[in-house]
Design a protein around this nucleic acid. Sequence first.
DNA 1: AACGGGAGTTTGAACGATCAAATCGACAGT
DNA 2: ACTGTCGATTTGATCGTTCAAACTCCCGTT
Lengths: 346, 346
Amino acid sequence: MGRPTLESVARQAAVSRQTVSNVLNAPHLVRPETLDRVRAVIDELGYRPHRAARTLRTRRSYLIAARMHAPEDGIGGAVLDAFIHALTLRAQEREYRVMLFAADDDQAEIAEYDQLLGDHDLDAFVLTGTHLGDERTAWLTGRGAAFVTFGRPWGADDAGHAWVDVDGAAGTYDATRHLVRRGHRRIAFLGWPEGSGVGDDRREGWRRACAEAGLETADLTRAVLDSLPTGRAAGAELLDLPDPPTAIVCVSDSLALGAWTEITARGLTPGRDVSVVGFDDSPTASVIGMSSVAQPVDDVARVCIDQLEQLLAERAGPAGSAETGVPAYVPAPVLLPPSLVVRASS
Amino acid sequence: MGRPTLESVARQAAVSRQTVSNVLNAPHLVRPETLDRVRAVIDELGYRPHRAARTLRTRRSYLIAARMHAPEDGIGGAVLDAFIHALTLRAQEREYRVMLFAADDDQAEIAEYDQLLGDHDLDAFVLTGTHLGDERTAWLTGRGAAFVTFGRPWGADDAGHAWVDVDGAAGTYDATRHLVRRGHRRIAFLGWPEGSGVGDDRREGWRRACAEAGLETADLTRAVLDSLPTGRAAGAELLDLPDPPTAIVCVSDSLALGAWTEITARGLTPGRDVSVVGFDDSPTASVIGMSSVAQPVDDVARVCIDQLEQLLAERAGPAGSAETGVPAYVPAPVLLPPSLVVRASS
DNA sequence: AACGGGAGTTTGAACGATCAAATCGACAGT
DNA sequence: ACTGTCGATTTGATCGTTCAAACTCCCGTT
């Protein structure tokens, strides 16, 4: 009477439980006629395997964990939210589900990993915001957990794990080249303090483009923490230079909006008097017409799920888990190009 | 050895499985000394119950499903993202987890409910964006599933289900009163077409405040779909009136930003020449300094989890499920007040 | 001394799936 | 006709937990 189980399907199709199970998990083992008959019954009864039972036996949950970040100032967070959305969608297409968790810092995040791994048999993790000295990846590797990071393994050449990232340097390079083509000769970079992988990488793209175009960069770069007020202050500094820049490439939309605010406060018009290009293409940038480098979050999500499936498939076969010293299989990393969205501000 | 189980804890503590289980789930049944002894062993071995096994037996998963919405234009979506974040946090505090799913429309959402309920034994759902003629609630009620909605049951007086909402009318009322106090006599409302519960409610708050202050409202309201361009066009219409408004209260930040764009395009300054108040307090509003009505998403999330716990606790006791005609217990609905964030634009 | 009752604990079955090994029939080779 | 092999299917055990019923003391009654 209740929901159909393997048992009831088996009875109805006059076969055994295991055969029904095989129809679903190893159809090549089943004779074609039997296959058809069982499948017909499955459809008729609307049978669907019970995840908890399957998980109990196989230790696979079809669940992927992702951290939901605190909204911060609301500018930068939008990219991650969009990424989580894309991830949910792509995971769902492959019969996986995304489970969320919240954490304030890396240690708390690791504590949650432990919980999730122990309580829910999580299949895999998707980490965002990798940074120098990231302890999370080592912890997960140590536990033999499958995971992908959205973000390179900053600091190490060979990560030893799967990762996808967006080529930030290419983004700022494109943005700078675009400004050069528009005739700008003094292009500044508004970035984060040295030492953040992401920030240094993006600065490097700007520097390279300037070098190639034979432009001066000395004194044209500023480094501040990521917020609107700090961006505004740094923007003011740049505009106050004896020979001020005519364009500013920024490491984030937060800083870009800060600069933007300062520019308009001086009665200047972004794009006409001073050009500004942000990074992350936040909704705010779109609304006010600010150019920005957009990350292809949907593609990132797609690749993440691809890599996870490879990892999990591999894991199902040759058991190269934590205890054995066998180096686990690692899919090739992927670096995706961002795209410059040109608006009135440049 | 592998991870500890009830069995291994039981052996170590020289009791039976069931006693260990009781220590965790029904401590009042266990003699105090035994309780201490078993608890000591649990700590020592680091035992944690296995969710899948528990779910298999009890049909409870400690999982709550929530829909991740498509980013749309990125303005309005931010509130929902913040809500999901708050929900994750609050759920986590009570040992629940949030599982995401994506859907394009109500029908697709219902299909996902079916999947989730069948495959993962979901404990409860949190619905967002209720609207007139919403089929989702009836479907879930029919299935006997526990759920709360963030949004009133528009159209029906008694929902027959738990809900939490933000008092939109109170928000626009406050915004309007605020403008009245600042001396405005012609205050317009930029809203959505008649027939959306949320939109009509918010318009009503404005109308009431105007009526109380003895202000004219005729021809001072516009109704357009939610987007920046439509908002801008409607804003232009209002500004072109023979006797134009000096302030505009908007049903959303999207429309408000549209109006804002039109105002600045005319060389006018929001807040000095024409005041604008939006709704939802998006990051963009914050950045450009636009006043807006903020929804207390964190409180909403908290109440949602509270109500769900009540529902699930009730369900565990007196079985008033789908088949029995017994009207299920329904927690009292909660209507939370929003808060006006005043910035330079008003 | 036999009985009833309750507190505390144990035992066996069940949840619904998969794994590993056993079974069965058909068919080929000698 | 015997043996061995292979493909297809079945059987019994198992994952870790909770439910329901049974059991064991111990104590107070009569």
